[in-house]
Amino acid sequence: MTNSFDRHTIHRFDEELQALYFQVLEMGELVLNQLCLALESVKNKDLTLARRIIDRERVVNEMEVSADTAVCAILAKRSPKGSDLRTVLSTSKIVNNLERIGDEAAKLANFVNYMHSHEDGDASNFPLDDILRLGGASSEIAQLSLDAFERLDGEQARRVIEFHRTLDQQFQHGLHHLMGFLQAEKANVSNAVSQVMMMKALERIGGHAQRIAELVVFQLEGEEPRHHTQDMAQDFPLEE
């Protein structure tokens, strides 16, 4: 199945669906960019970049409001059914998940801002390997889920859902490494908590990306894949 916007007898409806689709793609692109820049700011301890990301979070929120408005208008005017209904519903939820990915990216930038704008800490000593590895995986999964949405690719969406398990494992490994580091070094507690929160933010980004992939499957097939909540790392974050 591919997106085609010249199917309906009422052409205006096609135009509205197309506009919504491109709005989501644009929002996805912005959110991915926010995430990549946030990781860049973590890696380079770039405070200026971190503040830019925090400022631009407002644009992501505005895009969510705009997409929500479009969804409401379509529901009110067109009363969509069948695949149209599924498209509008899943798009609405995807927008919501994108906004949350944007929130998490801004959260990363906030921690960069917090950790490196205080002189009291040892933030520079913390190992970044795990965070960057987790960041690479979460941005990849987010990219893949948006590709699946763009191409309405059910197979890719299912791969993304599976890929999320890997991210969970990376999250747990990262936590264990950090605990080892904290036991060995006399580290600043607030910086340590920030590190944990950053890892958690990246893990959540993976969770939202997984949700986007599930919604693509719902859009295509009308049934949502089973939720893997029992596998989610947040339930047992320190389990080996």
Partner: peptide, 8 residues
């Protein structure tokens, strides 16, 4: 059915 209910 899909084509009828979606107006296509």
């Amino acid at each position: 059915t899909e084509r009828y209910i979606t107006g296509t």
